[in-house]
């Protein structure tokens, strides 16, 4: 029994993901040797940044259990980006752009948290609702057009590369994962998240502030989506009302693939990080091989089903 448990530890997830990653790389190399270069790594990491930030929030919301899920992440990213640019257009100094994006994301996430913890709406339904609201508002505010006017200094940050690694990846994605990893593993807050994720009733009985913790995690998911929105502005140079499209599906896949149990209480952020890199490598590879983008989304969906199946079987092994 103990041995099975050790095998299911994060180390197993990480080694499986690394193996899958190597398979993807080898397959890609066999089909198109020219893709393997520093430039590809830079591209993969640049594309990973948005998904990494959003998946981190998604993963923590799921980890805390209570049927936790954040389907609104895509809408939050789009709306935060659009709100940031609209604020600049309305005359706000561009200096405040980061604060607007991250602040808007946090507020939108906190709204999800209130729906879930105070009004007791099932997270799946609450965040599905806000997903439509947030992405709808992003579209209607802009009429569907991209909002330009990102300041140069932000572009300089968003497009900078240091030793082959994109600067935004180094300065926000990696620190966010490192902080989340440390907090989950080494602090009492982390223990509370795992405890409430696994058995909410017992967590309440021992006096853990379950609702407050959950509200904070939904807000944090929003904060990370806001940071992703800021990065999208800095990278693309404009606020696109559909920038967050498909992020809910992809971040869910990354969280599940990264070993976070659907029902909460098990998993870690290291696996999520590896899963994000794997997913983006796969997508970039498919792009390089000229596979239609429609198929890319389909492949992500198929991967999600595979992961859930694997989770189901590992459940029955125990």
């Amino acid at each position: 029994m103990n041995r099975v448990r050790t095998l299911q530890s994060p180390a197993l997830v990480l080694s499986l993901l690394s193996l899958l990653w190597v398979i993807v790389i080898v397959g890609l190399f066999a089909l198109k040797p020219s893709v393997l270069s520093v430039g590809t790594i830079t591209t993969v990491l640049q594309f990973s940044t948005i998904l990494a930030l959003v998946s981190l929030g998604q993963g923590m919301v799921i980890l805390a259990g209570g049927a936790g899920i954040d389907l609104s992440v895509g809408g939050t990213v789009s709306l935060s980006a659009v709100l940031g640019m609209l604020a600049v257009k309305a005359g706000l100094s561009p200096f405040f752009l980061p604060f607007v994006c991250i602040g808007a994301g946090t507020a939108l996430g906190a709204f999800n948290g209130v729906l879930v913890t105070k009004l007791r709406i099932l997270p799946l339904i609450a965040t599905l609702g806000t997903f439509f609201v947030y992405s709808g508002v992003a579209l209607s505010l802009t009429g569907g057009s991209a909002q330009s006017g990102v300041p140069d200094w932000l572009l300089w940050w968003g497009r900078g590369v240091l030793a082959g690694i994109p600067v935004p990846f180094l300065t926000i994605a990696i620190p966010a994962f490192a902080i989340a990893g440390v907090v989950l593993a080494w602090t009492s807050w982390g223990r509370w998240v795992y405890a409430m994720g696994f058995n909410e009733r017992s967590a309440r009985l021992v006096g853990i502030p379950v609702d407050r913790t959950r509200l904070i995690l939904y807000s944090l998911s929003g904060t990370l989506a806001g940071a992703a929105a800021l990065f999208s502005l800095a990278w693309l140079g404009s606020g696109r009302p559909n920038i967050g499209q498909n992020l809910e599906l992809e971040s869910l896949t990354a969280a599940m693939l990264g070993g976070i149990a659907v029902l909460g209480g098990r998993g870690g952020v290291g696996g999520v990080f590896a899963a994000v890199i794997l997913l983006v490598t796969l997508k970039t590879g498919l792009l390089q091989l000229n596979v239609n983008t429609v198929w890319q989304v389909g492949i992500v969906g198929a991967l999600l089903i595979l992961v859930l199946l694997a989770d189901r079987f590992s459940e029955s092994w125990r």
Partner: peptide, 27 residues
């Protein structure tokens, strides 16, 4: 009221962990 996914010592201290505060973060 035990959490099966946590260790014995984590369960014994759950909700009132021994901690060392670094910048307000309870390690």
């Amino acid at each position: 009221a035990l959490s099966e996914n946590l260790s014995i010592s984590e369960n014994v201290f759950l909700g009132r962990e021994l901690k060392r505060s670094v910048l307000g973060v309870p390690f």
